[in-house]
Amino acid sequence: MDAITAEGLVKIYKSRKNEVRALDGVDLTVPEGTVLGLLGPNGAGKTTAVRILATLLKPDSGRATIAGFDLARQPDDIRRVIGLSGQYAAVDENLTGSENLWLFGRLYQLSSAEATRRATELLEQFDLVDAADRVVKTYSGGMRRRLDLGSALIGRPRLLFLDEPTTGLDPRSRIGMWDVIRGLVAEGVTLLLTTQYLEEADELADRIVVIDHGKIIAGGTADELKSAVGGERIEVVAHDRDAIPRAKEILSRDCAGDVTVDEHTRRLTAPTSAGAGALVQVVRDFDEAGIRIDDIALRRPTLDDVFLALTGHAAEEETLTDEASTRSAA
């Protein structure tokens, strides 16, 4: 069964001066027990999508079901099975960590004893035991973030919305948070996660949807997206600027496509379909021609490449996929 289905979600923010189409016809499906990563640049509409699906905001048009409940007609039922951790930590600064968790547990309709028990569990899980009885005002940003995620988990939701859960966390806390999230997913929680970190989507998401200007511009597994942006590439950094024209010649002979040259960094990039074989050939030919190189590598596209290519901020226009070019035409 699908935990989330959404069709044609549109959200327009109207102000006196202008209108922003924050979501412009978004369709999503998230099968139960899977993780969907929602990726997009600033202002793409990620938060808006999360707020709509978590019942905080009404879409101007479109429909959605969450855990089988209709978004428009059964918001109360939806709130009983979801947990939300928004982009900015929403915990009470003047309550202690444990008071926050207890309060949200009670309001999730847990009994007082159960809320206390859950609060203790979560404080342990998120490494906040020592700070449990301190007011949140004294917490660091990362501690607040963890408490906020704990608050979202208080009622053991089946479906979790996390809006940039690791923004502002140090690398260790981020990896710790990933472990927590993986643990939840292992227990069968369905997760919709937004992020700016492509590495994070790569690590956690089963499927990734890239959104920009309120529209979905690509979707698939991380691998599918990467291969859509282009296959492997050979990157060479020539030692001497003078050698660049000859290096370019060799690369275009040994590789399958256009060679891009960055004169500044003396870096040449060429797509290839022959993988390591092509790399060996290139090294051999460079050696024969007596061209000194500083660095050579076979590079697979990262999600960063996907992101830059799809959202149109890429330097290399030729790596734009069909999907991305339809966007720039739109």
């Binding site: 939300l84 929403a90 999730y108």
Partner: peptide, 10 residues
């Protein structure tokens, strides 16, 4: 954001 937190709860 406290009100949003409340509004997301049952």
């Amino acid at each position: 954001g406290i009100v949003d937190r409340f509004r997301s709860l049952p």
